[in-house]
């Protein structure tokens, strides 16, 4: 029996889709069977971020409405063993499915997968309610800015009202240079305000845009700081204790060191 995790934020543009794509890919690279569900009906994006946009035949709404079998709406990612995507419908709206239908879908999927990751739409309306309906666990993504943190707090309240009382936080796009000069809230500030457990910190990293340009998740980039952060998050989701990356020295240096000592055959481990 797998675990259903919803990735949500309240505010748009903080990196929900990127986070879903990268955590999902990282989990698959760790040998887990993973399905990513794009719950942003009408504004689907997980498919392009994953580079799977050309392979869509059926979508989430088709599967829910019984237009196709569940399996037919799943796109197998040929690059990563065990990774699947269920795309959102692009020409429908959030009311095309109900929380009850979503719950049923999640129940079915977690029979076959270790992880069901749901990419929630922004906002707190119907789409959000659908996205959290079948979730066992929630990950809240925020960036260290007042608007995003405020919305995250609101979302945490709404999650608690829906029995998701222990959400975990991902602080995205942290800029160490700004934190150092006191112009960006640091991790402690953010956790202090929101009062939930930290799952991970993802540094601001150009690689994220480069990789989404190419449709290849940044976790596959050995030298990407953000990629390393997402790899760590995936391992934490599997119950491992992994220290936060040292953003001062940079992961490139750390990776070089690690490679130096462990030989070059440890790629993608």
């Amino acid at each position: 029996m797998g675990e259903v995790i919803v990735i949500t934020s309240g505010k748009g543009g903080v990196g929900k889709t990127t986070t879903t794509a990268n955590i999902g890919t990282a989990l698959a690279l760790l040998g887990k069977k993973v399905v990513l569900i794009d719950a942003d009906i009408g504004l689907r994006n997980l498919d392009v971020v994953m580079g799977l946009e050309n392979r869509i035949v059926y979508d989430l709404v088709d599967a829910v409405e019984g237009v196709c079998r569940l399996k037919q709406a799943l796109i197998r990612d040929k690059r990563f063993e065990g990774l699947y995507l269920m795309p959102a419908a692009q020409t429908r709206d959030k009311n095309a499915i109900s929380p009850a239908q979503m719950q049923k879908l999640c129940e079915e999927l977690k029979e076959h997968f270790d992880f069901v990751l749901i990419d929630s739409p922004a906002g707190i309306e119907q789409g959000f309610k659908n996205a959290i309906a079948g979730a066992d666990k929630a990950v809240v993504v925020t960036v260290p800015e007042v608007s995003a943190v405020r919305d995250a707090d609101r979302i945490i309240g709404l999650l608690a009202a829906n029995e998701l009382t222990e959400p975990q936080l991902v602080v995205n796009r942290l800029r160490m240079d700004m934190v150092k000069r006191g112009d960006m809230m640091n991790i402690d500030d953010t956790i202090d305000i929101l009062g939930i457990d930290l799952l991970g910190v993802v540094p601001d990293d150009e690689n994220i845009i480069v990789s989404s340009n190419r449709g290849e998740p940044a976790v596959t980039e050995e030298n990407s700081m953000a990629g390393q952060a997402y790899r760590n998050i995936a391992r934490r989701l599997l119950g491992e204790e992994v220290a936060l990356i040292d953003m001062e020295s940079g992961v490139t240096f750390m990776e070089k060191l690690r490679k130096l000592f462990s030989g070059k055959n440890k790629r993608k481990s």
Binding site: P144, E145, V146, V149, R150, D153, R154, G157, V179, R181, G182, D183, M184, M185, N186, D189, D192, I193
Partner: peptide, 23 residues
């Protein structure tokens, strides 16, 4: 002057207050 009034501290204080109302 910057040391005494870091923008992140302003952000944090403002957030704390607004969240009391929100919550």
């Amino acid at each position: 002057s910057k040391e005494q009034n870091k923008s992140k501290d302003v952000a944090k204080e403002r957030l704390k207050l607004v969240l009391i109302h929100d919550r």
